[in-house]
Design a protein around this nucleic acid. Structure first.
Length: 481
RNA sequence: GCGGGAGUAACUCAGCUGGUAGAGUCACAGCCUUCCAAGCUGUUGGUCGCGGGUUCGAAUCCCGUCUCCCGCUCCA
């Protein structure tokens, strides 16, 4: 049993084909030629994604007495995004090298230039450019100001030394749309680029209505939208994606302790609950922190195309609540009723991408092995994740076996996602189930008619056992705890 | 957004010195009645990504456009 050690593109192509052929993931609006980096989840995919989200939701909310859930709206008052910093810093000033056609962040070019001057001991010059840069950052026409500095300082492209620049242009990563019939700037709203702000602005609502005391958390699963310049790698980087995140509000000073505890819990969740190969999970510590964070780690997964983030655990300080206090004019303090202390809580965030996790599970589960000299393809999903929990297969289509199998299917269908299949040879039907990751098959055979038993066939080993039909429900239930 | 490659059946692909499309797999119906796919018979399914042009005639040539893959760039 080994996962395919093949070229990354090959593995990804196989996954994309299988995902489409069997109904996990289709390209969005495919009959019209699709839409860049947008995908639809099919019957099996939506079932499996729901399993993933349910597992997360239960492990975050029901398993923690002090965490509750919300489902905030995607569109919010636009001032939210000024307070959060997205309006200003989700805008990237980009400049293109006309010779090499490469694109760079204009501000990074200038920053690197200043750094280089410092390294070369030209402190005075560095200071002069740095002063320009600061005022340029505040300038009305920031693009022009950055461009002027790049030209005046004769900043060259880092990898080619060429200096054949285009204008500086802004790339806004937030999707804009208009609320109301008139396309005027007053009605401009954004599709949220992250779900977190929906939690922060509801801090007091949730605290009060659910009578929560710090430390407590608010969990949310929802869509976010980013107008990414670079998309791709199947569903890894989509412009519309889903986050599963939790903001944990703690007393200032206790955030590191809380951070470490969440770091451990979240990492183990992937291994213990989802059955992801531990060796494929990695920590990445951010050295360069975002404007809101004082500590940040990512959990990364070894995808065929590289080691990439699936969850971020960030200590967001009191930045967000403070900003909302300033921009909204509303007090965001928490009052500890036992000590009468007042403070703006610090926040520890766990933020996972459900689409990325879905992809990680596809990649981690894809297995090619050999059974009796025949190659087979199998998805080794954990039973809780698998879209179909069991298949009910009559060894023969006609007669009593079919009737008995149909009866068993009806009994199980109320509680479990099961499939009934009587088409083709039994071996072929097992392979069909292997390919969609069904962990168990119950086969009704000759003996079943006499002794009311069936065989359980295990996906991973292809081994079989005999159990009574009356125990099948119990058996499945036990496997799905 | 730039450079390179590519879009033909649900999937993998052939056809591309222009003459209105094929294979294998899959799926479906039947036979076989069998515990690990690919036995037999039959069937469904494509205006060749989309739009336009050249031509008597375009999957094939030209232009535009969309999408996917690789690389670059970017990434809260």
């Amino acid at each position: 049993m080994q996962s395919a050690a093949q070229s990354p593109e090959k593995v990804m192509n196989k996954l994309v084909s299988l995902a489409k052929r069997r109904g996990f993931i289709y390209p969005s609006s495919e009959i019209y030629g699709g839409l860049s980096s947008c995908f639809d989840y099919g019957p099996l995919g939506s079932e499996m994604k729901k399993n993933i989200k349910d597992l997360w939701w239960i492990s975050m909310t029901r398993k923690h007495q002090n965490i509750v859930g919300i489902d905030a709206s995607i569109m919010m008052n636009p001032t939210v995004w000024e307070a959060s910093g997205h309006v200003s810093s989700f805008n990237d000033p980009m400049i293109d090298d006309k010779t090499t056609k490469r694109r760079y962040r204009a501000d990074h070019l200038i920053e690197n230039h200043i750094e280089k001057l410092r390294r070369d001991g030209k402190e005075e010059e560095a200071h002069r450019v740095s002063t320009y840069y600061e005022s340029a950052s505040e300038a009305e026409d920031q693009n022009r100001a950055f461009y002027d500095i790049i030209i005046a300082e004769e900043i060259k492209a880092p990898d080619t030394g060429s200096a054949d620049w285009t204008e500086v242009r802004q790339f806004n990563l937030m999707f804009q749309c208009n609320m109301g019939a008139l396309a005027e700037s007053s009605g401009k709203v954004y599709l949220r680029p992250e779900t977190a702000q929906g939690i922060f602005v509801n801090f007091h609502n949730v605290r009060e209505s659910s009578r929560m005391k710090v430390p407590f958390g608010i969990a949310q699963i929802g869509k976010a939208f980013r107008n990414e310049i670079v998309k791709g790698n199947f569903i890894f980087r989509m412009v519309e994606f889903e986050q599963m995140e939790m903001q944990y509000f703690v007393k200032p000073g206790t955030q590191v302790e809380s951070f470490e505890s969440w770091r451990e819990e979240r990492f183990n969740w992937y291994i213990d609950r989802l059955g992801i190969t531990p060796e494929k999970l990695h920590w990445y510590k951010h050295d360069k922190l975002a404007h809101y964070a004082d500590l940040a780690y990512d959990i990364k997964f070894e995808f065929p195309f590289g080691i990439e983030e699936i969850e971020g655990i960030h200590s967001r300080t009191d930045f967000d609540l403070k900003q909302h206090q300033e921009f909204s004019g509303k007090n965001m303090e928490y009052i500890d009723q036992t000590t009468n202390e007042r403070y703006i809580p610090y926040v520890v965030e766990t933020s996972a991408g459900s689409d990325r996790l879905f992809l990680a599970l596809l990649c981690d589960s894809y297995t090619e092995d050999v059974i009796d000299g025949e190659q087979r393809v199998m998805m080794r999903f954990a039973p809780k994740i698998a879209p179909v929990k069991a298949a009910i297969l009559p060894l023969m289509k006609k007669g009593e076996m079919g009737e008995k199998a149909a009866k068993l299917r009806d009994e199980l269908a109320a509680d479990f996602m099961v499939q009934y299949d009587d088409a083709g040879s039994i071996g072929k039907r097992y392979r069909r189930q292997d390919e969609i990751g069904t962990p168990f098959c119950f086969t009704v055979d000759h003996d079943s008619i006499e002794d009311h038993s069936v065989t359980v066939r295990y996906r991973d080993t292809a081994k079989q056992e005999r159990i009574e039909i009356s125990k099948v429900k119990e058996f499945l239930g036990a496997k799905l705890v």
